[in-house]
Simulated assay, not measured.
Amino acid sequence: MDNNQNTLAGAEVFKLAPGDINHLFRRTGVKGNSLSAFTYNSEQAATSSPSELFKVLSESPRLGQIAGRLLEPDLKIEFNRGGAGAADDKYYVLLSTADKTVLTQMVNSQGDILLLLFDDWEPFLEWWINVYATPGVGDYRKVFPNVLETEILVCALHCIDIYRRSYMESMLDYRSGLSLSLTTQDFVQLLKRSLASKDKRWLLPTMFEVTPGLKNSSIALKPEHIKQAEELGFVTSNESTLTLGERSKIMGTEFITSWIGAIGWQATALINGEERSLSRVFLAPTAFANHMFSFEIGSGGVSRFRHQASTKLELTQSLDQWMESLRKVVGNGTVTINTDKTPQFKFCGQCGSKIKPGKKFCTSCGSAL
């Protein structure tokens, strides 16, 4: 990612040559920590000279702030982008408890280190949202009403990919109809092939490839996960045959026509001197919604996810709340992060209506909960 060394979208922009990092250590006296991508090499520092790029930063009043965040951050967010036709990209966002400034660390096409310093999370988020999010549409039907096991999401995204695949094959074969049925065995085998391919043209492998640390989650697909995907409308089953459901068709068409790539990120902090992963998120924007999946590890190491289909404004509000939670975590040493800070309602499995805590029957359709 390339930018001029001046200002950009409310940020001050600096460049450094890779060898300038050693001189940044020497000039500022910062020792570094495990969250930083850089370590001090005294031999190289003693035998090399800083580049012309370093001079601009060394004369800036922002030198101390940038060195503190780049070399000794308290909170690191690793971002990866890819999927669909989007170019692969990786960068870091670094924060400190000393103040609210936000430093973005990138590498440009010439191999220089590109640094964007924002005064606060708000201007950073405005820039980030304008680059990666779509406007979306309001009142997107809720797809996953509860916090669910990640295996259910794996099944759902696989169904979307199968629909996309069938659609493309029908075009290549000049067929008007789609092949929407397959055996359960073929469904599972195709899922294994999808994940092994690491092919980011498809939604499911993209989620695992761009979301840092997600591959390390304990994922074990069971028949009940396919059953729950069926209850959500992604598939219907008949003995050993699975047929893609209405939800797969709707979302499959959505991703065929308007998926612009995906972004995965993970927030890591030093908690009482120990490096801890706090939050992991996958975002897949389309013209209809910014699909955000946040992951958490529950009891027994079970991976669960929460889904939000947001407009650009709603996504901005959610990520504002997310950062507020992260800053509190870094401040007090706890490790509970939720991207959705609204009251935790449950939803009726029959009609999808919100259920207030403590209710045993749906107040809309009367179904037992």
Rank of each mutant, 00 (worst) to 15 (best):
Ser258Lys: 03
Ile260Asp: 07
Ile260Leu: 08
Gly261Cys: 03
Gly261Tyr: 08
Gln266Ala: 08
Gln266Lys: 09
Ile271Trp: 00
Glu274Leu: 01
Glu274Arg: 07
Glu275Ile: 05
Arg276His: 02
Ser277Pro: 00
Leu278Phe: 04
Leu278Lys: 02
Ser279Met: 05
Ser279Leu: 03
Arg280Glu: 11
Arg280Asn: 10
Arg280Trp: 09
Val281Lys: 00
Val281Ser: 00
Val281Cys: 03
Ala284Glu: 06
Pro285Ile: 05
Pro285Ser: 03
Pro285Gln: 08
Thr286Phe: 09
Ala287Asp: 13
Phe288Gln: 06
His291Ile: 00
Phe293Gln: 04
Phe293Trp: 11
Phe295Asp: 02
Glu296Lys: 15
Ile297Ser: 07
Ile297Asp: 08
Ile297Met: 09
Gly298Val: 11
Val302Lys: 11
Ser303His: 02
His307Ala: 08
Gln308Trp: 01
Gln308Lys: 10
Ala309Gln: 04
Ala309Pro: 00
Ser310Cys: 10
Thr311Met: 04
Thr311Val: 09
Thr311Gly: 08
Lys312Ser: 12
Lys312Asn: 07
Glu314Leu: 11
Glu314Ala: 15
Leu315Ala: 08
Leu315His: 02
Thr316Pro: 01
Gln317Cys: 05
Gln321Asn: 13
Glu324Ile: 04
Ser325Thr: 02
Arg327Lys: 07
Arg327Gly: 05
Asn332Thr: 06
Thr334Trp: 14
Thr334Ala: 05
Thr336Ala: 15
Ile337Asn: 11
Asn338Gly: 13
Asn338Trp: 00
Asn338Asp: 15
Asn338Lys: 13
Thr339Val: 11
Thr339Lys: 12
Asp340Leu: 00
Asp340Thr: 04
Asp340Tyr: 02
Lys341Ser: 12
Lys341Gly: 01
Thr342Asp: 11
Thr342Glu: 13
Pro343Gly: 12
Pro343Leu: 10
Pro343Lys: 06
Lys346Cys: 07
Lys346Asp: 15
Cys348Glu: 10
Gln350Glu: 14
Ser353Gln: 14
Ser353Val: 04
Ser353His: 11
Gly358Phe: 12
Lys360Glu: 14
Lys360Pro: 11
Lys360Cys: 08
Phe361Asp: 12
Phe361His: 14
Phe361Glu: 15
Cys362Ala: 15
Ser364Lys: 10
